[in-house]
Amino acid sequence: MNNSEFAVRLTDVKKRYLLGKVEVDAIKGITLQIPIKKFNVIIGPSGSGKTTLLNLLGCIDIPSSGCVEVCGQDIARMTDEQASDFRAENIGFIFQNFNLIPVLSAYENVEYPLLLMKKPAKERRELTLKMLNDVGLSSHKHHRPNELSGGQRQRVAIARALVKGPKLVLADEPTANLDSKTGQSIIDLMFEMQAERHTTFIFSSHDHQIMKHAEKVFEIQDGLLMEEKER
């Protein structure tokens, strides 16, 4: 595989941060390559460093040492503004707590990333409506997050992550706050979306059930890559 076939390349990445007055080594030297257009899963127990790793991949944090390349860009070399623009163009986030903007309706939440990309109004409207339709929430487009169920909120979050056609979608334990049935439906939806759009998905979870959907699994423990499995 050449470089362009990897969405992410990590070379001996370490991440140390302060927790109060204590220094914590969240990532202790990981080297990995995540292929494009695949449903990748990072699996590991709580505190293993999954979220820290996703933060690095999402360009919202920088490594203490080592190199993180996302879509061919070394994230440590980006300024804050460049990183913001890069995220706006290339990365979609799905959070554990949905993280929808409470004052915006489902439609407006999905439209928000397109506003950041300064897309014209007509294009925004078309893309937003299509995306809401794809996640099955056309009839709830005017609802605010507090008027939606947990599953519906996460669907809105998925739509928000995908609406701009990102190169990389990062989902940090997106089913952790959902019951098992709803969680399964969200996993099915994300898998379906990934299959349709061929977007690179990186999904973190401590749930081994998710592995049945994964095309590639990275298992990390105590800040180290323990296993890398192709399925």
Partner: peptide, 16 residues
């Protein structure tokens, strides 16, 4: 705070 983190992660600059 979490909302600020979210919209920054989505790509809004500090100036925004």
């Amino acid at each position: 705070v979490d909302e600020i983190g979210t919209i920054r992660a989505l790509g809004l600059r500090r100036g925004g």
